[in-house]
Design a binder for these strands. Structure first.
Lengths: 343, 343
DNA sequence: TGCCGTCTCCAAAACGTTTTGGGAGACGAC
DNA sequence: GTCGTCTCCCAAAACGTTTTGGAGACGGCA
């Protein structure tokens, strides 16, 4: 049977109040008593029952993270790194991490409600924002602490960290245009995702500055996976006039696109340029290595967690709305060496 | 303020006992009362306080998963898929998933102890077994329910799912040998990992059947990441006589090795064959696509979770020791087309 | 009429903590 | 001798549930 505070009380001949206070380090218990109690506690291998503690304290010391997955299975190096960032930072403050997956939709808000009202978590990290984000609306209304990776349409009155997607894709567009690419295609995420919007806009604006038009017909919407990128690129490359550059909105799709180009016998970086966004570890080791935009996923996750912890503690976070500047990582997939002829 | 069972009691004029029993569906409460109570419950937006419920019921309805990470950050598509498998299966039975990360070592067992004694979880999923696995020893001794992905040295008296690593690498060795490869190198995981042992053995035995010796000098130990695979392959390829095939013990290292080979101007599948193990989604879309061994990660995770849930429920799981046969997925990275000359 | 079931209901205890609101005793000062 | 002030301790209430062990009302039956 598990050892409780009551066992220590009996063993030491003190009351459970005193034991509790001794363990908590209050100074209305005699030093010798403290020593005695603590000694007996380790002797008995006492560990406090967190359920009881939390019920009493009305806090859970747990933060929630509900991953919006499309299919039931998902394999995304992006999220495993993000998760590590949240988990490690949370653990450092003695917080646990409750993880679940839930496809966007009706049930999703219920999952949040359930965890909030069932007093399972003190707050949430929200990821992969949508333009109209019901999760944010709900959490705001319910007054639950939360911190968001990404922004959303409407008033930005909540704490978030986001990368500057517009700037990022402008950098990329600039890079591509300078290399002489004129017929640029894009593999975009589903339009309801907030970053789809921003990244597309950045690409469009960046190209426009060089007098290059991003044609609507050259935009394919896909699902952020390699498989999706592969299919989108196939479709782009099956046209009569193929693009000379494909800017994918994340690395996974870019890698899929590279695979598609190669399966058609094209040399990536020579016959067609392909670029990504995120700079996952894979990007460095693909063939050719992928030109992409770097964002510090682990640090973003840690920062968000820190913000959330501050809010939960009732403090105002040091920084509560952060927009990071991604930087361009130029590798081989856009052919910096072998440049296409200027038209 | 949160609505409790007491609020419902006051509103309906019944006792809290009756409300509790009505909600739980006991049949010692009148049908009309049940209806009334339930109606008021939804009216008030009642959600039970899980902390209180769990404290009383002495169960947590939560399973724990502590990921053994080497560095603080890790980005592994393998685990994100595994996580989804566990999470989804657990959710289906109303269980939560508590995730944390902890590098192997002293602190690790404490992390387990802490969660067990603090009554935070009902059981654990253990991943990436070591030959001498202190986690398993501890959980077994403590009588905590658990299920393991992988095996360990010593008596196998615990529930697990594992792939047949020996068979898998034998298949691979056979494939390589049939293609005419004679000078085979291996990038192996750290020796303390159980599957390192098994996979190396399989490779060795499989090659031996074709009269090929896996030389000790051709084995490089690495850390399961792309970066590690890259470095290991660089070291192998810097030798005077380079191998004609490199069998990596997981896909991530294989992809890193491909990158290393390519950076030295070698054509993978022609100048050197490279193979992996796991069949992560990336393997299909690398260039060239990676020959590897497939294991159904998502299903493994779901199966393990099911086993664990059965044990927690006090039932004996339908199957408690599963060894899956991985199957060979032949792609281009070992040059099935362009075979090297027989020596 | 008295007894026994059957239906409904409920007060109180329990889960393991923390916090509140004192209380007893020692000691000095007046 | 009284009062005040410390120092150390503790009983009881509280957190929100579930379970235990009845209890009252009512009808049927001998």
């Amino acid at each position: 049977m598990a050892v409780t505070i009551r066992d220590i009380a009996e063993r030491t001949g003190k009351s459970i109040t005193t034991v509790s206070r001794a363990l908590a380090g209050y100074d209305d218990v005699a030093p010798e008593t403290k020593v005695l109690v603590r000694q007996v506690a380790v002797e008995l291998g006492y560990e406090p029952n967190l359920l009881a503690q939390r019920l009493q304290k009305q806090r859970t010391d747990t933060i929630g993270l509900i991953l919006p997955t499309f299919g039931p299975r998902f394999s995304d190096p992006f999220f495993s790194e993000f998760l590590a960032g949240v988990g490690n930072r949370a653990a450092r403050s003695g917080f646990d991490l409750l993880v679940s997956t839930q496809p966007p939709g009706e049930e999703e808000i219920n999952a949040y409600r359930h965890k909030v009202q069932g007093r399972q978590v003190d707050g949430f990290i929200v990821v992969r924002t949508r333009r109209q984000d019901a999760r944010i609306d709900y959490l705001r209304r319910a007054g639950v602490p939360f911190a968001v990776f990404g922004r959303a349409d409407g008033t930005l009155d909540f704490p978030f960290v986001d990368e500057d997607g517009v700037l990022g894709m402008r950098l990329m567009a600039d890079h591509l245009a300078r290399l002489g690419y004129r017929r640029v295609a894009c593999i975009a995420p589903p339009a309801e995702l907030m970053f789809a919007q921003l990244r597309l806009q950045g690409l469009r604006e960046g190209l426009a500055e060089h007098g290059v038009l991003l044609e609507e017909s050259q935009i394919r919407v896909s699902d952020l996976t390699q498989r999706g990128g592969y299919a989108a690129a196939q479709s782009l490359l099956a046209e009569a006039r193929i693009p000379d550059a494909i800017a994918a909105c994340n690395d996974l799709m870019a890698l899929g696109a590279m695979s598609a180009a190669q399966s058609r016998g094209l040399v990536v970086g020579q016959d067609v340029a392909i670029t990504g966004f995120d700079d996952i570890p894979m990007a460095e080791h693909s063939h050719p290595p992928l030109t992409t935009l770097h964002q510090p996923i682990y640090e973003i996750a840690a920062t968000l967690t820190e913000m959330l912890l501050a809010i939960i503690a009732g403090k105002t976070p040091e920084q509560s709305q952060v927009i990071l500047k991604p930087h361009l990582v130029i590798r081989r997939s856009c052919g910096s060496a072998a440049q296409p002829a200027q038209p």
